[in-house]
Design a protein around this nucleic acid. Structure first.
Ligand SMILES: [Mn+2]
Ligand SMILES: [Mn+2]
Ligand SMILES: [Mn+2]
Ligand SMILES: [Mn+2]
Lengths: 226, 226
DNA sequence: ATTTTTATTTTGTCTAAATAAAAAAATGGC
DNA sequence: GCCATTTTTTTATTTAGACAAAATAAAAAT
């Protein structure tokens, strides 16, 4: 008969590392490298090595020296809970407090660390159980489930087809503000009129307006074909 | 020509110390003692000494060894801002997320440390610029001003007079839950019918109901005479 | 005036998180 | 397979915050 710690205490820093590993791991099948984590978190590889050993001791990651790192089931659960909290707070800031979608990230980065299960459940309810955050990213359910919608990049739409703008790949302030200036928002209907051979830029019809956008932009906008 | 740090960075721990000093200082004219702070924060006097030196270096407290501590103007401003944030979050939890008044303190204790001026301004607006928190405590304005209402303890009401219940002196979970069970809430109209010589207990009429309450209770309920 | 008690500070350690510099391991080219 | 380069880890330090034990100051008692 053994004694199990039901809940491991995870510090704020540890949480941020877990989240970084989660996001880096999403886009690749291989284990996440120390340097990649250091770069993303603007910290040093040596600090990352230290932390990985600690997270490994706590059973949150699978870590083999020099071989990169992956999240354990427990680590994934922790990451998904953080992503859930982060995105719910973002929805709160935009829907209830009139923040713009380029202002929410930094504050959500703090709020995601507040520890109260009841708080987040009630917040979810207060917001009407939203399925996506202000950037179109899906919000994991309480038990870590995702609505995976079939979205594609605007640049991959063929000429003549129409899509609803459902998300951004790059959610940097500069890109989001740029979209605001161009009056491109989630929910807009976009029809691809023509593609320029020269630079891959697109002529689109967005809710009745004609617009000419660079390939760069089309590469960072998600749409759902209709 | 000198360079001034416009904003001193105050850590979470420092903020909690500042708040403790503020609350302890409210009820007394003398400087706050090291031991009192240690007791309130469930920490050791030695830790407090260390911190007081640091806070003094940052210009947040006036500290003379062995002579206790008071807040500087900057310290007071910091404390009031924290109290403002703490109480606004408490209102949010009760008004918007259906928390009960005995559940809000621990969560607000975390939320008060979130750093974003815009967040708190917008929250204030979202809540309709409340003047008191769920325990009847006043919420400082953005520039640190208070609405000081003329309230007195229920035990100090004379026989036959009536008051509106406007606050609690003790806002511990046990007391708040007890009041819930007795169906005593802020806003209730209380008339003092009789005082027992023996134990100082009171017979009151509260919104039409007759109730017999101990002196202890009457000592922890604030009323506003009508 | 002296001693005792209480309150407070100092000192030395500890842990968490970070960095810089040095060492070790992996990798890619020949 | 060996070398040079890159990546990663180790080691030694630093800083913030905490605590226990020892030292000291102030207050109270004799
Ligand atoms: Mn964060
Ligand atoms: Mn987002
Ligand atoms: Mn706090
Ligand atoms: Mn309160």
């Amino acid at each position: 008969m053994y004694f199990y710690e039901n809940f491991i205490f995870v510090t704020l820093s540890e949480e941020d590392y877990i989240k970084a590993i989660y996001h880096l791991g999403k886009t690749q099948t291989a284990a996440v490298s120390t340097n990649a984590i250091a770069k993303r978190m603007a910290t040093k590889p040596s600090s990352v090595s230290d932390m990985l050993r600690k997270l490994s001791d706590k059973g949150l990651v699978n870590y083999k020296r020099y071989k990169g790192v992956t999240l354990t089931d427990e680590g994934i659960a922790t990451a998904l809970n953080l992503v859930r909290k982060h995105r719910l707070w973002e929805v709160f800031l935009v829907d209830k407090l009139e923040f713009t979608w380029d202002e929410v990230h930094e504050v959500a980065e703090q709020l995601e660390h507040i520890k109260s299960e009841k708080l987040i459940d009630k917040l979810d309810q207060h917001l009407g159980f939203p399925e996506v955050d202000p950037h179109g990213d899906p919000i994991p359910s309480k038990n870590g489930e995702f609505k995976t919608s079939i979205k594609k990049l605007l640049k991959d739409l063929s000429i003549g087809t129409t899509g609803i703008c459902v998300g951004v790949k790059d959610s940097s302030k500069t890109f989001l503000k740029f979209l605001d200036r161009k009056k491109i928002a989630l929910g807009d209907e976009i029809k691809v009129l023509e593609r320029e051979e020269f630079d891959g830029s697109l002529h689109i019809d967005i809710d009745g307006r004609d617009l000419h956008i660079s390939k760069q932009i089309a590469t960072n906008l998600y749409v759902k074909e209709v």
